[in-house]
Nucleic acid binder design. Structure first.
Lengths: 248, 248
DNA sequence: CGGGGGGTTGATCTCCTTCAATCAACGTGG
DNA sequence: CCACGTTGATTGAAGGAGATCAACCCCCCG
């Protein structure tokens, strides 16, 4: 359960835990070699800002381990998370000079960065990268649209249940396709981060989590360790149909 | 002002009003010829459903003229719009067998459809299509994220102002880059569609539009014709900084 | 003339926010 | 070792923005 994230950069692409899921997933050996020449690792501590919105970006890259958030902020300080970056997720937009969002490390973070200019050039030459990036972007677009339903139409309780089910599902697929029985996982977000994700206040998040606990939908050990005794029940609370809207 | 949309399909790709902005934008003459063999036009009347979520999709395509909406619906009937499809926008996801969303024609609609299988094959062979689709998908993702801020953190009044400013801006860029002076445009959506877009009820939409009118932010002729005397004022009401968060 | 779709407006209710107090865990320095 | 501050979280009380329920209008069309 622990140690699902490395804390150090892998030595070579062969060692890389995200080798088969990141933007480089489809690359051949020679293409990896090319990428290797323009890549470098960067480490961030929990809480550190990776990029400020509006700053010039001279790199793009992948999350190797740890979790980061993508957020937008209004002048008066209201903030909305618009992306949750997990290992293998891609950061940055080829062709864009400045960052559009704040990127903040939620946990300790390792990123595999590519210098932007040469990466863009490689994209034009080797279709494997562009193909994979298209696939990943389409997936993100689907996730964003799913989230628009959550933000626009779901109640606070449903929002929390939706977030929990998403984290739970991701955890299950990560850890060798859910053995049935109660699922357990660690919430990677503070109450405030959850509120920013769901368009709520942190007080409401806290209240609804307590309510779900009281109603037996989830169990808690400490603040972060969640157990879901009945996943279908959680999905029902999220307002999803029980097959979970699988799109594949 | 009128007749910005054709009501009939173009005869050839050369005539096509979206030739330089759609998924085929980067194609060479020979590639267009190839596309021509797998394409066909379809017409829909206002209100008609183009695709039902969950239905098998044997085509993908572009909006040639008219407007369509992408919506998600929960079992109890709550619906959230997750995309507004304007001329040149792409419909469908290569690689996916079934539709993930309802697509409904808001106005009379002409679509340029490609049979899915051969289109997917062309995508693998000609990078121009995949490149353009990636670009378009990244733009859509940015739009979706902008919308997540609107849905999650803005007030009803700000939501309406945001929607109006988006429609206004699109109209301005379409019609030869805003001559300054009051902008005018036609709202392409009913109050109910706006509500579905913004995560509100149609009553709230109506009230807030009335309020913006009373406060002089907009003027109305009939229900649909909007005049914006001071665009910066509208942006301020939307909670955007006056440069409009340009990302380029 | 009747009917229906789209829109506006009013009254009431409710869910979530706001403001505020309290708590537990943790680290730090005297 | 204990007082103190900090950070994340919980809980309570009060208020408000928007939902809900409902009446009504306008206009087009059969």
């Amino acid at each position: 359960m622990l140690n699902e994230t490395l804390t150090a950069a892998p030595r070579t692409c062969g060692d890389c835990p995200i080798r088969h899921r990141a933007v480089c997933a489809r690359c051949e050996a020679d293409e990896l070699e090319q990428l290797d020449k323009i890549k470098y690792y960067r480490n961030f501590e929990a809480g550190q800002t990776v990029i400020w919105s509006g700053d010039p970006m001279d790199f793009v890259g992948s999350v190797v381990s740890g979790i980061a958030t993508l957020t937008q902020t209004m002048e008066d300080g209201r903030t909305q998370m618009v992306g949750l970056l997990l290992p293998s997720d891609f950061v940055g937009r080829p062709g864009r000079g400045a960052a559009a969002y704040d990127v903040v490390a939620t946990t300790d973070l390792v990123m595999c960065c590519f210098r932007k200019k040469p990466f863009e050039q490689m994209m034009n030459e080797t279709p494997h990268i562009a193909q994979r990036l298209l696939e990943m972007t389409l997936d993100e677009l689907d996730a964003a649209r799913e989230w628009m339903l959550v933000l626009g139409r779901k109640t606070a309780r449903e929002k929390i249940a939706s977030l929990l089910s998403i984290v739970a599902r991701r955890n299950a697929t990560l850890h060798l396709g859910m053995r049935d029985g109660p699922m357990q996982f660690v919430l990677p977000l503070t109450r405030e981060a959850m509120a920013d994700y769901l368009g709520l206040t942190l007080e409401t998040v806290s209240r609804q989590i307590s309510a779900l606990k009281k109603d037996g939908v989830i169990r808690l050990e400490g603040k972060r360790n969640v157990t879901v005794p009945d996943f279908d029940r959680l999905l029902a609370e999220a307002g999803d149909d029980s097959d979970g809207g699988m799109l594949v």
